[in-house]
Design a protein around this nucleic acid. Structure first.
Ligand code: FES
Ligand code: FES
Lengths: 140, 140
DNA sequence: TATATACCCGAGTAAAATAGTCAAGATTAA
DNA sequence: TTAATCTTGACTATTTTACTCGGGTATATA
């Protein structure tokens, strides 16, 4: 399974973006500063987010990024998909030498990971970006 | 998050063990052969499983491993815990330079990962080893 | 008792994945 | 024009993972 800083940062940064999106585009520099994430790394991440239409970019001075959809309509699963964090716990078909070759038949645990994938993905599928910031506010 | 071959192999091997446990102890060599997992790696894994009372070992010729509990009573969460695959998606407190230092306050996404951890762990908590082999048999 | 079978254990290594950097642009507002 | 900002591909350091090695110890059975 993959759930790395790339996906974490993406969610973090977008939550930040959602908070400051109200009037004008938000430059990465601000997000980098507020969230303590390397600017260069953020750029890499936002490129992917842009390609997948999660955000829209405005170049030049005074530019930055804005959300493409409303935070209420943006599912976390879309975000993870965009940055290549496809939550796959299944391991078969990768090579034919290891236990999980799926050559003759599925290994004993195959259906388990299948089920787990479904379980995890449904979590992200049902979670909207807006819920994040709300939860945060409630706790404060 | 961590979900690596160590945890996968542990579940695989134990499922195998559960199937062949009926009469006599099962040597790792057999499991290694049947599941296509390196014997030396299996030894490492079973050492941990033994320390956490998941399996019991019988040394010497004709020896091997047997399950400590019945497969119906063995939760997958116990297995993962035993091999150090503590499913933690949370990242804070590791170092104070990165985004998630938890120094002044929790980051925006903290509660999200909290919730996710809970969600995933409940999956393993409610899953017994015996359910694995049953599912497998049903599909055949 | 000799021997083979099997578990026991710490340490070490190679490969892969991740996290992050660099350099050289291209746009655009002011 | 200048400074701010996004764009892009390649490159590198670090960390983690997966696995091996070498030398044990216990026990069954011939
Ligand atoms: S996980 Fe699919 S064959 Fe093992
Ligand atoms: S995940 Fe806990 S502070 Fe970021």
């Amino acid at each position: 399974m993959k759930l790395t800083t790339k996906g974490r940062y993406a969610v973090m940064a977008l939550a930040d973006l959602a908070n400051f999106n109200k009037a004008s585009p938000v430059p990465l520099r601000d997000i980098s500063f507020r969230q303590g994430i390397s600017l260069l790394y953020l750029e890499q991440i936002f490129l992917k987010l842009k390609k997948h239409n999660i955000v829209r970019s405005i170049r030049g001075s005074g530019g930055g990024y804005i959300l493409f959809k409303k935070a209420e309509e943006l599912k976390l699963s879309e975000i993870f998909f965009a940055v290549d964090e496809n939550v796959k716990t299944i391991n078969c078909n990768k090579d034919s030498k290891k236990g999980c070759n799926g050559k003759s038949s599925k290994c004993i645990t195959h259906y388990l990971w299948d089920e787990l994938d479904l379980h995890i993905n449904s979590f992200f599928e049902n979670k909207k970006l807006s819920e994040l910031t709300k939860t945060q506010n409630k706790k404060l």
